[in-house]
Design a binder for these strands. Structure first.
Length: 485
DNA sequence: CGGTGGGACGATAGCGTCCCACCGGTGCTCTATT
């Protein structure tokens, strides 16, 4: 049994902190006494320490499941800066002899980072079984619920991974999860809800003002967007549900406002995406026009506004996206622009084209190639390979469709509210309504745009060789934003 | 659902209008060609 003073000793000596922050000791104690734990803490609250510290008290390695290679890279870099050398990242980059060597000596690593896809590879799994890890960490655990069923189904195989690792103690980490999502995460990992310790802190962000600006049509929305970007101090992010529009509006806003703007979406080259994120962090860009691809791992503290040009798919995504504002505690705003009919795009995006049962059956029996299943062929092939019957698969997807439609409806209900938006959001996240506060939402303060105590924008950085306008021209010249839409 | 691009058509020489089909987000890994 590990004692509390041993925990503090590691905290002082290894990490150089005097004391824990809210939720940290509770989580670490639960893990070290063998309890599976779900911890929900806001970004910046020190979630990495929750597994880094136990790693120095446990007898074997810690496996961390992460949805993005860039997130893993950040963690690996940070650990190496702290002087930790026993860190490895298992990705598709690691091939051939290097890969064999790493897998053969996997037990010498203290921190093993990997994607869910990599963890279900049979060679990796075999190596992991030899390691007998002491702790499995699921970072950004809401991805299991959000992405697992219809985008990255390997997330659902983590349940089997846990069994094969003899029910390894599991830590689930996220910044936002509704009660429904919490239950879903626990269930999809094959854990028993009643036996999982939950360390949950409020998702309320009192310094983020909430507003919905209703407009008549696309033209009015355009005008409102320009008005907001000219009025609100930056830096900021505008979210779109289409790559093309994100790119077009970035160009338009650069011209209209003279700000340093760049688009960001998954159709752009990795290097370009990396550069844009770096420039944004360094204040060389003041505004990003992005799809939902932008955000995870973006830890910029002084974001002043998040505007949504389109509806997000659900309130959980909305909360994650607006939660990127105001991490410095200063006044910030989240404005959702809504024109009648906007929900059409999002409802289309969340519609899965379901094949007929007959077609699925023929693919299952090998009479037809999975290609006949259309764009979602890999997804359906995955479930068939897992041994589900066509009927089971279709039933599950019908259920999923209802759930997605229901979640979108909740998002629309938020738009149409006639009472405090914050109370509604907090209720949705299973919390009591917060006590009244000065700057809350547009329904309490319709004239908010004139009265919010917004801090000034930081001066854009203009170091030598960091001229954003030249960068913009360069990007425009290669037309890469437009070609890859 | 709504925006957009292409083609047909009409009325008359360079272009407007209408209709229809199509598209729209998120990332990992592995494998076969340039």
């Amino acid at each position: 049994m590990i004692k509390t003073d041993q925990i503090y000793q590691v905290l002082h000596q290894r990490f150089g902190y005097q004391d824990f922050r809210d939720g940290q000791l509770e989580t670490i104690t639960a893990l070290l006494s063998g309890h599976d734990t779900l911890t929900i803490l806001p970004t910046g609250a020190g979630k990495s320490l929750l597994y880094q510290l136990p790693a120095y008290l446990l007898p074997s390695g810690v496996v961390i499941v992460s949805p993005l290679i860039s997130l893993m890279q950040d963690q690996v870099d940070r650990l190496r800066q702290q002087g930790e050398r026993r860190v490895i990242m298992l990705t598709g980059q690691l091939q051939g002899r290097d890969r064999r060597e790493v897998l053969n000596s996997l037990d010498q690593y203290r921190f093993i980072f990997a994607s869910p896809e990599m963890l279900t590879n049979s060679q990796v799994l075999q190596a992991l079984r030899r390691v007998r890890p002491s702790l499995l960490v699921v970072d950004e655990a809401h991805c299991i619920s959000q992405w697992g069923p219809d985008f990255r189904p390997e997330y659902l195989l983590l349940k089997q991974l846990r069994v094969q690792l003899s029910g390894v103690v599991t830590l689930m980490l996220t910044a936002t999860a509704t009660p429904q999502v919490r239950q879903d995460i626990i269930k999809k990992l094959g854990l028993d809800f009643d036996h999982v310790r939950q360390v949950i802190r409020s998702v309320n962000r009192p310094n983020i003002f909430l507003a919905v600006n209703r407009v008549e049509d696309a033209d009015a929305k355009q005008a409102e967007l320009v008005h907001l970007v000219k009025t609100l101090p930056g830096p900021g992010i505008i979210y779109f549900a289409s790559r093309k529009l994100a790119t077009q509006q970035a160009i338009m806003l650069a011209q209209e406002t003279g700000l340093a703007v760049a688009p960001y979406h998954a159709g752009m080259a990795a290097l370009e995406r990396f550069n844009i994120q770096q420039q944004f962090m360094a204040n060389q860009l003041q505004l990003i026009c992005a799809t939902s691809a932008f955000g995870m791992g973006v830890d910029k503290t002084d974001l002043r506004y998040i505007i949504h040009y389109h509806l997000p798919a659900n309130l959980a995504s909305y909360m994650q996206e607006i939660g990127r504002a105001g991490r410095d505690g200063q006044q910030s705003v989240a404005v959702l622009l809504y024109a009648p009919g906007d929900e059409g795009l999002q409802s289309q995006l969340t519609t899965i084209d379901l094949p007929s049962e007959a077609l699925l059956t023929q693919v299952q029996q090998g009479k037809l190639q999975p290609a006949v299943l259309g764009e979602q062929k890999e997804l359906f092939a995955f479930y068939l390979k897992q041994g589900y019957s066509p009927r089971q698969i279709l039933r599950a997807f019908h259920h999923r469709q209802h759930q997605l439609a229901f979640n979108l409806q909740k998002m629309l209900d938020y738009v149409g509210l006639d009472r405090c938006r914050r109370s509604y959001l907090l209720n949705y996240f299973g919390e009591e309504a917060a006590p009244g506060q000065d700057a809350c939402c547009d329904l309490d303060q319709p004239d908010w745009e004139r009265h919010l105590p917004m801090p000034a924008s930081p001066a854009p950085a203009k170091g030598p060789g960091l001229d954003w306008q030249a960068r913009l021209r360069e990007l425009l010249n290669v037309k890469s934003w437009l070609d890859k839409g």
